[in-house]
C-alpha cells in the first residue's frame, strides 16, 4: 500500500468542493466560481493521468487541459455576460458601472 499522491487527494477535493458549491450556493457568480473549481479538479486529474505514461508526461492530456482552460474561460465569460444582464434587469436604472 503506497501513500496517496497529495495532488491526487487535492484533485478529488477540488471536484467535491466544486460540486458542493454548485449545489449549495444560489448566487450566479458563486455558481460560476464553483463550476470553475470543479473544472480545475478535472484539469488536475488529467495532469496526474499524463504523468503515468512511461517516458515523460503524455502530451495529449496536456493539450486537452490547455484546450479546456481556454474553453472554460470562454464559457465563464459568456456566463458572466449573462449574469450582468440578468442581475441588472428589473433595477430600472443603469447605475452598475460605477460604485
Amino acid at each position: 500500500m503506497t501513500l496517496p499522491d497529495p495532488f491526487a487527494l487535492a484533485a478529488a477535493a477540488l471536484l467535491a468542493l466544486g460540486f458542493y458549491g454548485f449545489v449549495v450556493q444560489r448566487h450566479p457568480l458563486r455558481r460560476l466560481l464553483a463550476i470553475n473549481v470543479f473544472g480545475n479538479g478535472v484539469f488536475m486529474t488529467l495532469i496526474l493521468v499524463a504523468r503515468w505514461m512511461p517516458g515523460g508526461p503524455d502530451p495529449i492530456p496536456h493539450a486537452m487541459v490547455l484546450t479546456g482552460i481556454v474553453i472554460a474561460v470562454s464559457a465563464t465569460a459568456m456566463g458572466l455576460a449573462l449574469v450582468r444582464r440578468d442581475l441588472r434587469q428589473g433595477d430600472g436604472k443603469d447605475g452598475g458601472d460605477r460604485d
Binding site: 484539469f43 496536456h62 487541459v65 465563464t76
Partner: peptide
C-alpha cells in the same frame, strides 16, 4: 507535476484574465 505549459496557461488565463473578468 511536469506541466510547465499548463502552469503558464493557468497563471495567465485561469487566474489572470478570468480573475479580471470576475
Amino acid at each position: 507535476l511536469d506541466a510547465p505549459d499548463l502552469a503558464l496557461a493557468e497563471a495567465a488565463i485561469g487566474a489572470g484574465l478570468l480573475g479580471v473578468l470576475l
